[in-house]
Design a protein around this nucleic acid. Structure first.
Length: 192
DNA sequence: GCGTCGATGGCA
DNA sequence: GCCATCGACGCG
């Protein structure tokens, strides 16, 4: 990201997010998340994601059915699903797949860019650093405020593991639906 | 460096 | 009563 900085990187579009949660989880690794807020631009490279596969997936919120909270998961792909947990943390998810499929990807960790000095290892920390809250729920993630750039020259070295904190999800807890870019210095340090 | 545990609030 | 978390604390 230096000499080629001025050549426009392609923004991930709705079609990208219409892929399955697994494909979106994998495809997001190595991409650059861009956040514009308060006249500032913050960017970070995504190094960890988790896929949630819809109502049949007992770890997915949509398995509880359609409620006021989960409503956005049942909507079109490419929108944010933001929810509050543990009394103090916001989780930033991206709705993906076909409309009604209620799949989502949780963005768990990223490597800050442009000299931004911050710890983005963990979904709570990431949302906090990017100032993502309930205000951003259902937001279109192909828009200016938050979007993602493909970086075709960046190489990902991916490892799959089990998702975090889903011990209650019966057989679904064993599925390898967590994806880490261990080729990235930040991703390499994540606990597996 | 690693395990344990409390804070804290929306949701079913 | 959970819960897709974090950070402080106690080890030795």
């Amino acid at each position: 990201m230096n000499a080629r900085e001025h050549t426009a990187l392609k923004r991930l579009d709705k079609k990208f997010f219409e892929q399955s949660a697994i494909d979106v989880s994998i495809g997001l690794l190595g991409t650059i998340m861009v956040r514009r807020i308060g006249g500032k631009v913050r960017r970070a490279r995504i190094v960890e994601t988790e896929a949630y596969l819809g109502p049949k997936d007992l770890a997915a919120h949509s398995s509880k059915g359609r409620t006021r909270r989960t409503e956005v998961m049942f909507g079109p792909a490419g929108r944010a699903y933001v929810y509050f947990i543990y009394g103090m943390y916001w989780m930033f998810n991206i709705v993906c797949g076909v409309t009604g499929g209620a799949q989502a990807v949780l963005v768990r960790a990223a490597e800050p860019l442009d000299g931004w000095d911050v710890d983005l290892t963990g979904p709570g920390k990431l949302a906090r650093a990017f100032t993502i809250t309930a205000n951003d729920n259902a937001m279109d993630l192909t828009d200016e405020k938050i979007h993602f750039l493909a970086d075709p020259d960046y190489r990902v070295r991916m490892v799959r593991t089990k998702r975090v904190g889903v011990d209650y999800a019966k057989h679904w807890k064993h599925r390898l639906l967590r994806f880490i870019d261990v080729g990235n210095p930040v991703g390499a340090k994540l606990k597996r």
